[in-house]
Design a protein around this nucleic acid. Structure first.
Length: 322
DNA sequence: AAGACACTCAACCGCCTAGCA
DNA sequence: TTGCTAGGCGGTTGAGTGTCT
């Protein structure tokens, strides 16, 4: 038995619709409404299955369909809703008048998804990607992006592009992952309220940049909070005391970030958290000493490739060092 | 100029589910 | 309660088009 036959009747046309077919379908629905989709093709004189007619109508012929490129606002809405709903395209389309689920799905797969990947964001989880192979491949670029990003904190007149900001943010997150062998303390990544863009002073000072960017703060409520309210990384001191939904910014929160390239962490709270964390495989770790970043990594990098890479990197002027 | 390759998006496929008898 | 059906949904495909070499 199984499913009802719909399009398996022989002789029914498939493939692209002709203008004549479109006209027949439009005229019929205008006069009679669609009623039963299964009965419609016969009544309208179409050699198509009902399902095909319904799709053609809902995805293309409906008069309230909005055509043309997606606006930045629409794109932002899609990203935010996707972070909340996942691939629930019809639910997402319900929030975008005139856009069909099919159109949104296509736009996601052809544009937004790629964009997020380029920015180092996993389009499924909306979190920074953490596969190390990609880190190795992209590190030089990202370091350059991070350098550029820091340069901008020194010269407030320069406006960065969104991708550079995102890359720098992503680099920051990767540094946390790369530092994960240093097990002085740890944070459960699955319970970390992670927002790749966060609310760094950098973005706050540049609303023209931050608007229309990925903004998971609008949808972050589904993610559990971690009990960590501030810590620092080689790239800056982070705090979310002011906003519990906020994640650590990449850029130092104060204007003179020079002294904030220290590794500090609230061990008490983290250790306390660890006592309640049962899955050791899902932990991110941070060091607590005050070593410069290159030293820290050097201590951990037994692999010669890493040493070479890091030495090469550290030989360049590193903007996050004092 | 032409072939190869990449990208876009309309359309299809197959599964799921609500509603009805 | 069960079985059937229509409609809805998400994933995938492939023709058309653009770009590169």
């Amino acid at each position: 038995m199984g499913r009802s036959p719909c399009c398996d009747e022989s002789g029914l046309k498939k493939g692209p619709w002709t203008p004549e077919e479109d006209e027949k379908l439009i005229n019929h629905i205008r006069k009679h409404g669609h009623g039963s989709w299964r009965a419609l093709p016969k009544q309208a004189g179409l050699n198509r299955c009902g399902k095909s007619c319904r799709l053609r109508w809902t995805n293309y012929l409906r008069p309230d369909i909005k055509r043309g490129n997606f606006t930045a606002e629409e794109e932002q809405t899609i990203i935010n809703l996707h972070s909340l709903l996942g691939n629930k395209w019809s639910s997402i389309s319900g929030h975008l008048p005139g856009r069909t689920d099919n159109e949104i799905k296509n736009y996601w797969n052809t544009h937004i998804r790629k964009k997020l990947i380029q920015m180092g964001i996993d389009p499924v989880t909306h979190r920074p990607r953490t596969d190390h192979l990609n880190v190795l491949a992209a590190l030089p670029q990202l370091l350059a992006a991070a350098s550029f990003n820091n340069l901008l904190t020194l010269n407030q007149n320069i406006q960065p592009d969104a991708t550079s900001v995102a890359k720098a943010q992503w680099l920051h997150s990767m540094m946390q992952v790369l530092n994960s062998n240093n097990t002085s303390s740890s944070v459960d990544i699955h319970h970390t309220n992670y927002n790749i863009f966060g609310q760094s002073s950098f973005l706050e000072n540049r609303p023209n940049i931050s608007e229309n960017l990925y903004d998971p703060t609008q949808s972050i409520s589904r993610i559990d909070h971690q009990p960590l309210d501030s810590f620092s990384s080689p790239l800056g001191v982070f705090s979310h005391q002011d906003n519990e939904d906020m994640i650590p910014p990449l850029i130092s929160a104060s204007s003179d970030g020079s002294k904030q390239t220290q590794m500090m962490i609230k061990n008490k709270e983290i250790l306390k958290h660890n006592e309640h964390t049962s899955n050791p495989s899902s932990t991110l770790t941070f060091t607590q000493d005050h070593q410069p970043w290159c030293d820290i990594i050097d201590d951990e990098a037994s692999d010669s490739y890493w040493k070479d890479l890091i030495e090469q990197t550290c030989s360049e002027p590193w903007p996050f060092h004092e």
